[in-house]
């Protein structure tokens, strides 16, 4: 079965979804992503969906689940590059994915992950101090 590659950039995992995934492939991606977070101790996950031509409720749920699970494993998730037509459709479908952080592109996504990680550490330092 084909697989979606997961790349390591610094302490972040980068996944670029470029094919129309059937449901099992999407679930397999979720599994291997979680395994990879634990293996590498990654602090951030970036899902680049700029090549994805649609997001239906299944993919929407998948993104939500990945973000929640990653949070439990101490990694911040950012979804980047959603196309306007996809965003409009998703809102019409009734999904706003309010639990997910988003950024326009990979650059801005990496910066956002950095801010989230730093922000959490600062908040922790303040409490400790």
């Amino acid at each position: 079965m084909d697989q979606i590659p997961i790349l390591m950039v610094g302490d972040c995992l980068l996944v670029s979804i470029q094919v129309d995934m059937h449901d099992q492939l999407a679930l397999a991606l979720q599994d291997s992503l979680m395994t990879k977070i634990v293996e590498t101790g990654a602090r951030g996950v970036m899902l680049d969906i700029s090549s994805l031509q649609f997001v239906d409720s299944f993919i929407g749920r998948l993104l939500n689940n990945i973000a929640s699970m990653a949070r439990v494993l101490d990694a911040a998730t950012v979804v980047v590059g959603m196309q306007p037509a996809v965003a409009i459709t998703l809102v019409e479908l009734g999904l706003t994915l309010s639990g997910i952080r988003t950024a326009l592109n990979v650059d801005k996504g990496l910066a956002l992950i950095r801010r989230i990680i730093d922000g959490e550490e600062q908040a922790f330092d303040r409490r400790e101090g």
Partner: peptide, 12 residues
């Protein structure tokens, strides 16, 4: 946008 809406509805 129309394409995407139709494809997404079909997928559901």
């Amino acid at each position: 946008v129309d394409q995407t809406k139709l494809v997404t509805a079909a997928s559901e």
